[in-house]
Every structure is written in structure tokens, then in C-alpha cells.
Design a protein around this nucleic acid. Sequence first.
DNA 1: CAAGATTGAGGTTTCAATCTTT
DNA 2: AAAGATTGAAACCTCAATCTTG
Lengths: 144, 144
Amino acid sequence: MKPTEPQPAFDFCLILNRSHNTLMRQLDSKLASLHGLSFNDYLILYALGTAPSGKLRRTDLAQAIGVTASGVTRSLLPLEKIHLIERLPDARDARVGYAALTPTGKQLLKHATISIQPIAAEATAALTSKQLEEAVYLLRKLAG
Amino acid sequence: MKPTEPQPAFDFCLILNRSHNTLMRQLDSKLASLHGLSFNDYLILYALGTAPSGKLRRTDLAQAIGVTASGVTRSLLPLEKIHLIERLPDARDARVGYAALTPTGKQLLKHATISIQPIAAEATAALTSKQLEEAVYLLRKLAG
DNA sequence: CAAGATTGAGGTTTCAATCTTT
DNA sequence: AAAGATTGAAACCTCAATCTTG
């Protein structure tokens, strides 16, 4: 365990993990108390709401929010049960399943989107807008 | 769902989540196959190995790796069971419990530390050293 | 066989409540 | 009452295997 030379890659993994955990706990807790949603739930609604065609294949949804295909299936189930999203088939390819917002889902997304802005702003208050944009730029390179 | 004005705070939360998920899946999978450790397990060993006194209170460990006190208790249990860490009492205060590396734990940490550098480097290859340092600087502000 | 999606099994983490010690 | 730590219950997510369709 040497005090060691600079290891930017490792330091980055360390701090990315820590800041992510801290930030997500804040977002989850506030979003849950306001709308009964986890941040991941919100991300799903948001991705569907901003998709050009209003619907998204499960694979693309997985890519968009950064979880596995399995994770998407499991996250979608309870959202479908409470009628926030619905599943649609594809006329051309019987393998693919789309997910889309229901009217109720659209309403909730609208409200949650209004709530989340100040929550995110407060949770990231330690950084200026410019710094946030810089961080976004850097992290985007990583996610591909 | 308006295409909306710039919302750097929200965009940041989005991309932080996505890049974290992607990065952690890589680290976990490679670390698991090489040493049977999750990245969080490694983080615990690393934090204990670099602590000045060689031991850390559970609360401080939680702070260091960004999980709750509960999470620390549960992560430590299996590591103690396979004799990588041991628990020590505090002579002054019977409430606090320290965690410290065993000789076996120190060995494994040494080996895992050697493995993890190239893994982290590869997983963050999309960024230059300078960019990584910049990202570390920004994220550190967030974690406090 | 490849792609999209789901399921079974297992592991992880959180919240809230609780216990002990200060 | 506050601080450190643990536990029960529940939620969540992954991997690997499987099923169906192309």
C-alpha cells in the first residue's frame, strides 16, 4: 500500500462511485416522497416522454438509462401494473416489445419533471452551471 | 414534454447515473473473475489499507465509500467470514466497532491493487489523464 | 445461429426500527 | 436524547439460462 503516484483512472472510479451513491440517495428519497417514484422509474418515464415516436423498444430503453435488458423488464412491470406505461407490439417483428406512456403516465411525468428540477439543482449546488456542463461533457464521452 | 431549455443539473444527474452503471458493471465483472471481489469489497479493503492507523470505524468507512451504515455492516460480514478483515473494539467507547485488514486481507489488497490499475485505465480510456483529473476535481466538490 | 425479451436464482443496498452505550 | 451499530423487510439489479421469432 504505497501512498503511490497519481492514478487518475482509479481516483476517478472512486469518486464517481461515491458521488453517484450520494446523489442518487437524495434524488430517490425526495422523488419517492413526492411522487412515489424511484429515480430509475422517473428515468424510464422521461425516456419514453422524450422519444420522438412516444415509444421505445426495451433494448433501447435499457441503453438509454444504463441498465441491462433484464433490469428493464423488471422495472417496467410495476409501472405497467399501476397503469403508468403500457406495452405495444411491433407489426413487423414479433420479437420486439415497445413501452409507451399512458395518459396517466404523461400526467405524472409532467408533474415529476417540475419537481425534479429544483431537487437536482439543490443536490448539485456545489457546482456552477458551467462546471456542470463541463462534467456532462466529460461523462458523456465515457458512456459512449 | 417540451424539448426544453438547458437544464445542466438534471442532465448531469442523468449522465452521472448512466456512466456510473456502465463503469461499475465493468469493474465488478473483471474484479470478480480475478479475485472474487466486488468493486465495493475492494473499496473497503482499500480504505482500510490506506487508513493511517490501519483501522476505521464503521461510520467513517461508510462515509469513505458512500454507502449507509447499514450497508457497511452487511458488506463487512462476508469479508469477515472469509478472514479478509477483522473487527476490533474501542477501549474508550464500547459503541464503536473498528474494522481492520487481516494479513490475508493485506495480501489480497496488494494483488487486487495491481490488477485494478489497468482495468480502471481501460474502462476510462475515452478520457485523457487531464480530463480524468478535471472530472475528479469536479466530482469531489459534489461529494463534499 | 442471432436478436429481443423474460425468468430463476442470488446478491446487494436501502429505510425504518431497535438495541446498547454515552 | 444522541451516536454507533445491527436487523427485518422490501426493493432492486445482475448474470446465466431459456424461449420465441427472424
